[in-house]
Write a protein that binds this DNA or RNA. Structure first.
Lengths: 156, 156
DNA sequence: CGCAGTTGGATGACATATCAACCACCGGTT
DNA sequence: AACCGGTGGTTGATATGTCATCCAACTGCG
C-alpha cells in the first residue's frame, strides 16, 4: 500500500499549489454561477461576446476570434453554432477568403454583454480585488505574467 | 454602439485580473493535457484517486469524498460510475447507513495514481513553482488563502 | 497550369459537467 | 405506529469541451 508521502513537492510548495488550486476552483465557480444566474451566459458565451463587442463594428473573422480566446477550431465552431441559435451572434461568409466565416454580434448580444460585463466586474472586485492589498494585487499580476511567459516560451 | 471602455475596473485591476485569468486557463490546460497524455486520467479522475489513495485503506464514504473534492452529488455519482467501469474504483453498500455507498480504490487505481502523482508534481514544478522566486511562491500562497477565506466567509 | 502542403472551418463521437427531479432512508415528533 | 423534514445517492436531460477526421479553398513552387 504505497502512500503518497514521498510526493516530490515539499511543504512550502505543496501549500502554494494546494491553496492556489483551490482558490482557482472556488473563484471560478463562484463567478460562473453568478454570471449564469444574472445573465444566462456561460463563461464561454461571455468570452466570445466580450471579444466581439470590443472589435470594430462587432465583427471578427472566426480565425481572429479563435486566436483571441485561444480555443480549438472545433470548440469555437460548436460554440458559435449554439450562440447563433440563441440569437447572440450571426455567421456570414467571408469575402476575402471563401473558406472563412465572419462572426457578428447581434443587438441582443450587445445588450446582454454590457450588463454582464458590469456584473462580472462587480464579482471580480468582490471576490478577488477587494480582498487583496494593492501590493498583493500587483504581486499577483507579476506572478501571472511570469508564469504565462514561461508557458508561452516552452511549447513542449 | 456602447463600448466597454467604461468598465468598472481600472487599469491596475484589469491587468491583474486579465493576467491571472489567462494564466489560470493556460496553466490548467497544460497540466490537464500532460496528465491525460501520460496516464489517461482526467483532472476529475485524478482528484478522486488522490483523495482516495490518502484515505485509510483507500476507502471513503461517498459523502466524505464529495466533501473533500467539493462536488455536487450528481457529479460524483456520474464520475464514480465511469471510473467503476474502467476498474479504477469500486462501489459498495454502506453498513452504518443503508442509503450510503462506499467508494474503494482498486489496485489498478492505486498504480495509476502513484505514477500520475509523480508526473503531476513534475508538471506543477516545471510550469509554476520553478518559474517563481521563493518570495513569489509564498506571496501566491498568501493571496490564495486570503481569497479563499473571503469566499468561504461569504455564502451569498 | 498542376500539384503538394497548409489552413479555415465543420462535423460526429465521445467524455464530462450541470440541473432538476426522484427515491429510499434516517431521525425526531406526535 | 404514522408522519415529516432533511439527507445520501442516483438518474436522465441537456449543455458543454475534446479529439480525430473531414473537406474545401488557399498558397507556393515546379
Amino acid at each position: 500500500m504505497p502512500t503518497l508521502a514521498h510526493q516530490p513537492l515539499d511543504a512550502r510548495e505543496e501549500r502554494a499549489w494546494r491553496s492556489y488550486h483551490e482558490m482557482e476552483r472556488e473563484l471560478a465557480g463562484r463567478i460562473r454561477r453568478q454570471l449564469n444566474r444574472d445573465t444566462g451566459l456561460s463563461d464561454a458565451d461571455y468570452e466570445v461576446l466580450r471579444v466581439l463587442a470590443d472589435a470594430p463594428d462587432g465583427i471578427l473573422r472566426a480565425r481572429e476570434l479563435r486566436c483571441e480566446v485561444r480555443w480549438e477550431k472545433s470548440r469555437l465552431s460548436h460554440q458559435i453554432g449554439r450562440m447563433e441559435g440563441r440569437g447572440l451572434v450571426t455567421r456570414e461568409d467571408c469575402d476575402e477568403d471563401s473558406r472563412g466565416s465572419v462572426i457578428r454580434i447581434t443587438a441582443a448580444g450587445r445588450d446582454v454583454i454590457v450588463t454582464a460585463c458590469c456584473e462580472h466586474a462587480k464579482a471580480v472586485r468582490a471576490y478577488l480585488i477587494d480582498r487583496l492589498s494593492p501590493e498583493q494585487l500587483e504581486a499577483l499580476a507579476d506572478i501571472s505574467e511570469t508564469v504565462l511567459a514561461g508557458l508561452e516560451a516552452d511549447t513542449s
